[in-house]
């Protein structure tokens, strides 16, 4: 089983890299430092759902519309990752995780290593129960925002130009 989890993590990291997404494994205590290394200020964020993983002081965790407009970085948790697509799942909530992950040029997502599922089928088994129960919303995000509408591939059409994933283990 642990072997399978190893494969799943590697596959996720490899697939995400195809879209230019950096994936780094960190211990809970080092999450804050890892964010500081990557962040561009000003930054907005939503408190992480794990007790021992925290956001650095420099991240505004009760953002206003003005903060969102000004922010260069947004930091949120990801609820799930799909290994064979290199995708992360961003759940909407009343705190504002959705806009915080969307408006800035850099999105840093923090993911629990145990939440990487192997494929889309496993992801939709999870979605099925979750969405029927909670009636929540979520985004399957793969790489940065992109468009080819202007004659060549450009990243950051409306959403982030760069995505970094910190995998907590």
């Amino acid at each position: 089983m642990s072997h399978q989890i190893e494969d799943t993590y590697d596959q996720f990291a490899t697939e995400a890299a195809r879209y230019g997404v950096g994936v780094t494994e960190v211990s809970p205590g080092k999450v804050s430092d890892a964010i500081v290394e990557r962040i561009e200020l000003p930054a907005v964020g939503i408190e992480l759902p794990w007790e021992d993983a925290t956001l650095p002081e420099s991240v505004e965790t009760e953002p206003t519309p003005a903060d969102i407009e000004a922010a260069a970085t947004g930091v949120t948790a990801a609820s799930l990752a799909i290994a064979d697509y290199g995708s992360i799942v961003l759940r909407s909530d009343t705190d504002g995780s959705e806009p915080v992950s969307l408006f800035n040029d850099l999105h840093i997502a923090v993911l629990d290593r145990a939440d990487i599922v192997p494929d889309m089928e496993a992801a939709f088994e999870w979605f099925g129960d979750e969405l029927r129960e909670s009636r929540d919303s979520a985004i399957i995000a793969t790489g940065p925002s992109a468009t080819a509408d202007m004659g060549a591939l450009v990243q950051g059409a409306h959403g982030p130009k760069q995505v970094e994933v910190l995998v907590v283990s």
Binding site: P63, S92, T94, G96, E98, P99, S137, T142, G143, A146
Partner: peptide, 29 residues
């Protein structure tokens, strides 16, 4: 293989609206 975003929206959304005419009130809620 997959597009950048697959939105799975179950409206009305939980996500707070963003009122840019009221720039200094935190959006959460």
């Amino acid at each position: 293989d997959i597009t950048s975003y697959i939105s799975l929206l179950t409206p009305p959304l939980d996500s707070p609206t963003i009122d840019f005419d009221d720039p200094d009130t935190p959006i959460a809620g």
